[in-house]
Design a binder for these strands. Structure first.
Lengths: 227, 227
DNA sequence: ACCTGAACACCGTTCAAGT
DNA sequence: ACCTGAACACCGTTCAAGT
């Protein structure tokens, strides 16, 4: 056997430990010192594996994005089950439908991953955290749009829009946080709500990230690009 | 005169000082200690005005969002100049066009504000930073969609989508940061780019936040909801 | 009400030194 | 190459005390 590192610690092991801390204690708790302690290391030893904290965060974003696949076999199966008619001409429509479902499923998967760990949005919206993993995700989403019939340029636009939309939606949910802002500051002299739209948003669960509403908004965005 | 505070410092004065630091040194530099020093105060004195750092950040978000108006007289003027025909029947189409332009202008204005200060995205995507200002912005955007003919519920959905889209777009731009990721890791044995969509995104300026592309994506989203 | 000074429990990062 | 220990220049927040 080759002489491995003195201790059985790897970059990906550190990333895994960092995700555990993120999940349990939030973004602010993801510190060089904290991760080192969780691994039984001295803070300075961390710099053997990552030259800076930003590089660790970047690696975490890479890992988070790498898992989002735009090939959703489930979605394809759903589209099949939904049942293309026996007409051979329906092939195009069916493949469009599959492309649509794959893209929606990818965005929902990404949303789920971001909501999984508290503060993962802060991770993803950090300065200069995008890397090869982000490039790969955009490529996969874009290929989905190409499969839906878009040109490469439009697919790039659509992929960026879908990614931004998903990150923004979850970011907005987290921005509301636990703090329940009083939207219902209805005037006493009136039965009309002072802020009807904002109240509707709260009632519909847009703030809290209602899954059905999220899916619908993603589907609308995808449709806006594919048609 | 009433006996004012011992020193001429107000909450909004602190917020202003905090924005100056944000603009000059980025989000990480916006600290209780740093803002206090800029005002000639002791860090502990800050707690007279804001009970915690999060409250200061919340106040900053409020200020940032409060300035985004969905009534764009400029946009209305543009629509007028663009020239409704003399037919009286064109009134509806013209007012739809005005609503559309107002909404696009509001999103562009928000995008501009977010890009103005480095790290403003981190500010806005923070945990629990949304407050009355966010409610107000959603209400104004929503009213724009109502003016475009949407129901209150759909207007709420559209307003949330537009806000999320805008924040997400700028967040994505910042995530790329100065670090230029090599998309062009083209294989030597082939003329075909390895990641055609990602390369297209870079070429089109989607990463860097090209203004024309940003406007187009916002316009597409608005149109997807208004039609 | 507004402010200071000292203190507590944290940060990221560097540097010299050990194996 | 991998790791430790000490140190530097920071954090947010609390507490007792002053006016």
């Amino acid at each position: 056997m080759r002489p491995g590192p003195r201790r059985s610690i790897t970059q990906s092991g550190i990333v895994t430990a960092a995700f555990e801390i993120l999940e349990q204690s939030g973004f602010a708790a993801v510190s060089i010192r904290g991760v080192a302690a969780a691994l039984g290391l001295t803070p300075t030893a961390m710099y053997t594996y990552f030259p800076s904290k930003q590089d660790l965060l970047r690696a975490m974003v890479e890992a988070l994005f790498a898992g989002v696949s735009a090939d959703a076999t489930d979605a394809a199966r759903m589209a099949d089950a939904a049942g293309a008619t026996d007409a051979t001409d329906a092939a195009d429509a069916a493949s469009d439908e599959i492309a649509r479902e794959r893209l929606v499923a990818a965005a929902i998967d990404l949303g789920r991953r971001l909501r999984e760990h508290p503060g993962a949005v802060s991770l993803v919206t950090g300065d200069g955290v995008a890397g090869a993993g982000t490039v790969g995700l955009i490529e996969r989403l874009g290929q989905g749009f190409v499969a839906g019939g878009l040109s490469v340029d439009d697919a790039a636009r659509a992929a960026h829009a879908l990614l931004a939309h998903t990150i923004g939606q979850v970011a907005l949910e987290q921005a509301w946080g636990a703090a329940s802002v009083d939207v219902a500051e209805t005037q006493l002299w009136s039965d009309e709500p002072a802020r009807p739209v904002a109240e509707a948003g709260e009632r519909l669960g847009l703030r809290a990230g209602d899954p059905g509403e999220f899916r619908a908004s993603v589907a609308r965005l995808v449709a806006a690009w594919l048609r």
